[in-house]
Write a protein that binds this DNA or RNA. Sequence first.
DNA 1: GCTTGACGAGGACGATCGTCCTATTACGTA
DNA 2: TACGTAATAGGACGATCGTCCTCGTCAAGC
Lengths: 220, 220
Amino acid sequence: MSSREGQDIPPTGEARAPDATLSGMPEASTRQRMIETAVHLFRRQGYHATSWRTLVEAAGTPWGSAYHHFPGGKEQLGVAAIDLGSDVVVAQMRELLVETRSLPGAVRAWCRTSAERLAESDYIEGCPVATVALESTPESAAITAASRKAFERWCGLLRDQFVANGVKRKRAGELATLVLASVEGGLLLSRVLRSKEPLFVAGEHLFVLLGGELRAECPL
Amino acid sequence: MSSREGQDIPPTGEARAPDATLSGMPEASTRQRMIETAVHLFRRQGYHATSWRTLVEAAGTPWGSAYHHFPGGKEQLGVAAIDLGSDVVVAQMRELLVETRSLPGAVRAWCRTSAERLAESDYIEGCPVATVALESTPESAAITAASRKAFERWCGLLRDQFVANGVKRKRAGELATLVLASVEGGLLLSRVLRSKEPLFVAGEHLFVLLGGELRAECPL
DNA sequence: GCTTGACGAGGACGATCGTCCTATTACGTA
DNA sequence: TACGTAATAGGACGATCGTCCTCGTCAAGC
């Protein structure tokens, strides 16, 4: 029951629509609210520690519709939650890039805002992918694939930004990997140690590193 | 049942003895084998996905002795597993420091050997603490405390090494945090992406960074 | 106006969970 | 040899797990 292909889950719309309002729907659909609640609960206490009952209770959604919206079972919910979490992070990165208009600044701001949000949630709301990924790799092929896709997407987005800033493709890939690893590790350490410091330290270091790197590659 | 102090678990010898052979015991004790198996299973599939039955079956230890050796229940087993995992990492770091006789070299070797071991295990054997920590923070106070203690221990060991190499205490703490965050993030990414590259990239970067840092601080 | 299907409601189902129990065996000490 | 403690053995226990089922509701399409 755990050796799925990762492809046999019907893509029932997934979590692409931002927030319903498609055909006059008054509030977020049941399915959407289930996924949003899953993102919060999964990154708080993980996949296996979150039961359907806990989820529908927290989301205020009907218990009976769970397998109507997610015929693939809890695994499909996990995939949808990771996909939504991935979307949220991508949107946040894009927003920070626009706000700071500087790649090193955006990376530092990413670390800082992540640290602030983590602290505000009493060190609970870490990465929406890491916990589930570590729990389910490689036990569930579908969740493994979704986690991998999320990381690759974030890494690719960063790499493209470095390339756009004049960094050579190979080095850009390395920098993207390094940034993502530092942020993920910082999130992990900050959460467990209950301190913003690891993420702040990572942010400052990356800011200095990327500043030098971009100046060297694009010396105009 | 989850709001323990983390101190009320009787230290029944813990996981200190290397491998039995204390009074003519032919093989590792039941308790020790349970903990060792728990380290492997917990970091593979996490805490909640590993049941007592799975564990005693994998360890080949008597099912009836579980609550004899761990009257604190599964939570106590989790704490013991994290403690043992922490010991193993500390021993590995010390060994690498002796082997390479260079702090940057030891950090790079840490990344490389971690990547190799991860790949050899088919990208299963990641950090022995991270998975359980993310799952159980802050749900279980005892496991949270144990995870935090492990990270602080590793961080402290690194910081002391930097101080011994002439780095000022404040900067040494930052570097230690940065190294640990990079390694943990690298382990996470390498595992999910099924590639040694993230850990290798982190290792190379840290090697260069620390080389410059130590040369600057101790210019003899 | 009747059919159809999406969706909400609630619970049954067997499996498995962590926990805890009594009985029995192994073994150091007197 | 007798005995007390440690350890093993195996299963009972209630709770909860993920899954799946039937039924009621309601809006849209012919």
